[in-house]
Every structure is written in structure tokens, then in C-alpha cells.
Design a protein around this nucleic acid. Structure first.
Lengths: 213, 213
DNA sequence: ATTTTAATATTGACAGCGTAAACATTAAAA
DNA sequence: TTTTAATGTTTACGCTGTCAATATTAAAAT
């Protein structure tokens, strides 16, 4: 009585939750590959679905990428927010927030790159992405403010210190991700340039400490 | 006596200096477009040459991109090296070096992105690129060292301060380039978040000053 | 000056990509 | 039960990077 049902090897004509599957597959690819390895067609193939099926869930490739950004920002933001409760000392927390940021970049470099290096045509269109992103950033900002309120804090405009903190931690992430850039550093008796975690620890601590006397 | 000479509208069968032309056209495109707008075929068309002609000068697209990186690193490095002679005060110079870096990113964002965000498959293959890049970075490093030798300087391992400086200035460049990221900053009475130059000035100065008491 | 060779160009082809248009199937709403 | 909206499919177009085979010519060797 069935016509011959379902495109090959699927139980129903409809996939069920293609959108989520696509996002997850994409993240999967990004774990071992780069943005260049990410194609809608490849995702469709992986999901066992026709090459235009993704277009029912994403207007275009950019929309898929926006979803990946959102996913990453959410995860990064959650990690940082958890630190807001776990660590009450502002200076310590500032350092730990930085480490979270750096470690995210180290663990998911391709995902991180998409989050920060892929520019959307119209950022404002993706309001949920904007909200989610705000989460992590505001942790950083609030913590910087707390540091500046500490006795003996350096006198800097909050926005300047916030910008500095964010710049520092972002730049650090990029530099550490980039094997080749590290090669431009000269060797040093106190620092093992091969140990990225040590570098991150020292730089973030140094920044934290620079905010107070 | 001519066979019918030359592919349409060229004086000789050979182009003359196709390699340079391609690089310049590429930089041209990057002035108003992005890496996504850059295709070998488009460059070939622009140069009035067949679509495979570029392959006589670049092994593949990546090789062309490496040339673009090199061009940018050379320019950035030269600008920074000039500052080494112009400004003798280390703290002042450190700040100005940072400003150069940031301004380069602001003026040639797409080029900057290629320089730092496009990862070559095999960086070591491009030794000239490596040398040229070293120029600018070592200016930053030497200047940081001079600052640390100043009376009243903070006690930090040189490599840590160098890494911090570079991270700071690179992260700052990225953040300022990214219109959308700035939106996540809260407004501030002392800083005009719309004035990227002012932000850069304040952040770089703040960093410079943080190295000495 | 003539021949040989290496550099530089061309045409044609292939597979992969993003995505638009037209149509099919089915789950959910009326 | 019928209608409709959501979710699929097929086919097609133009773009891309790049390969193989071939042509032209400037420069080197004779």
C-alpha cells in the first residue's frame, strides 16, 4: 500500500529533527576540520538527506553559521557565568575568566574562529546570538569593575580596563591558537614557550595584578 | 606574417609581469571586499589572462595568499621599524607601535584578516614570510624589553610582558575591526565608544603605563 | 644565426560548491 | 475528512579550484 515510501534508508519521509542534526554534524566537522571543510552539501549527505533539504531550516549558509556562533557563545558564556558564582575574589576570578576563554579557543579552535572571525552580513538580524554573546562578555566587564573598586586599584576609566581585559584575553587566545605565531617569540629562561597553558596562566595573572597597585 | 598573435587585446603572448599584477589586483579587491570575494579566476579575468595562467606563478590559491600575507607583513613591519628610530622613549614608542598595529587593521581589515586569520597548511614552507613577519614582532618585543629595563618597571618575565603586549594590541585590533563586538560594551562617561581611535589611544597608553610604577 | 629548452600562456575538462525553481510527501490544523 | 503548512526531492545554473594536454615565445646553448 505504501508508494515505495521514504528516500532510501529512512523510516519516514521527514527526517524528524534535521535542524539539530545539521548543527551537531557541523560542530563535529569543526572538531577536526576547519570552516573550509564545512559545506551544506556535506552536512546534508551526512544526515542522509537531499542537498537542498537544509534550506528548509536555514535561509542560507550564513544562517547555519550564525547558529554555530550562537551555540558557541552560549557554551562559552555558560562556562564564564559559572565562574561568577564559584570564585568570589575579583582578581582571581578575572584570571580564571581569561583562562576559560583561552581554553575554549584551544579546545575548539575552528569553532572559536567561526565565532569571532566570521563576520555576518547583518549581525543585528540575529538577536538571539546577540543576547547569548552578551552573557560572557558582561561577566568579564562586571568582574573588571569589581577589580577597579578594590582598595589600591589603578585609576583607569572602566571602559578602558574592560576593553583592555577583553583585548588581552582575545589576543592571547588567537596567538596561542596560532602555532606559527608563537614561533616568533624569543626563548626565555622563565617561560616555556612550548607550554601554552603556562603562558596563559602567567599572562592572565599578570594582567589581573596590573589592575591593582 | 603574424599567426594572429596574442590572446585578445594584449600586445604579446606573454603578459610581462603577471605575478605582480595578480598580487596588486588581489590587494585591490581586498580594499573593498573580503577573502570570499577573492578568486583566482576573477584575478585572471581582471588581468585579461586565461583562468589557469596564475598557476604559472602560484602553485595554488594558498601560495597567492601567502604572498598577500608577506606583502602585508612587510608593510606593517616597515611602519613599525620606522618608529624604532623616530621615537626614542620606550613607553611612548610602545604605545605608538600599538597604534600602528591597530591602524593597519583599521585601514586594511580584509588584508589584516588574511595575515592573521588565514592559516597556511605549511607555514614553514614560506621562509620569506617568516622573516618579514619577524621584523614587526621583534620591534614590539625589543621595545617591551626596554620598558622593563626602565627604573621603576614592574617585575615580570620579559616573555610574559612581550606576550601581553602583543596579545593586547592584536586583540584590540580585532575588537575594533568588529563593529558588532563593540556593541557589547556598555557606555561610559569617560570614553566615547564610537571613537575607535580614542579607545585605541587610551588602551595602548594604559598598557604602556602599566609596565612601570 | 640557428637550434634547443625552459618559461609562460591557452583550451578543455572535472568535481564540488551555494542556491534557485518546481514538484512531492506528510504531519498538523480546520 | 479536507485543507494547509512544513518538510522533503529533483533538476539545473553558474561559480569555484585545479588538472592534463597543448601552444607560443623569450632566453640559453650551439
Amino acid at each position: 500500500m505504501n508508494k515505495w515510501c521514504c528516500p532510501k534508508g529512512r523510516k519516514s519521509y521527514h527526517h524528524g529533527n534535521l535542524r539539530q542534526t545539521l548543527v551537531e554534524s557541523a560542530l563535529d566537522i569543526l572538531k577536526e576540520g576547519t570552516l573550509a571543510d564545512l559545506s551544506l552539501r556535506a552536512l546534508a549527505r551526512k544526515a542522509g538527506v537531499s542537498q537542498t533539504a537544509p534550506y528548509r531550516h536555514f535561509k542560507d549558509k550564513e544562517a547555519l553559521i550564525a547558529a554555530l556562533k550562537e551555540e558557541g557563545m552560549r557554551k562559552l558564556g555558560e562556562g564564564m557565568q559559572k565562574l561568577m558564582e564559584e570564585e568570589k575574589d575579583p582578581l582571581q576570578r578575572l584570571q580564571k575568566l581569561g583562562m576559560r576563554y583561552v581554553q575554549f579557543a584551544e579546545k575548539y579552535p575552528a569553532h572559536f574562529k567561526i565565532m569571532f572571525e566570521y563576520e555576518l552580513g547583518d549581525y543585528d538580524k540575529y538577536t538571539e546570538l546577540h543576547n547569548v554573546s552578551d552573557n560572557g562578555f558582561s561577566c568579564l566587564q562586571r568582574t573588571v569593575n569589581e577589580c577597579l573598586a578594590l582598595p589600591g586599584a589603578r585609576k583607569v576609566a572602566p571602559a578602558v580596563a574592560q576593553f583592555s581585559a577583553w583585548s588581552m584575553v582575545h589576543g592571547l587566545s588567537v596567538l596561542l591558537m596560532n602555532q606559527s605565531l608563537i614561533k616568533h617569540m624569543k626563548e626565555d629562561h622563565f617561560v616555556d614557550l612550548g607550554d601554552r597553558n603556562q603562558i596563559a596562566e602567567m599572562v592572565t595573572r599578570s594582567f589581573s595584578e596590573s589592575l591593582v597597585k
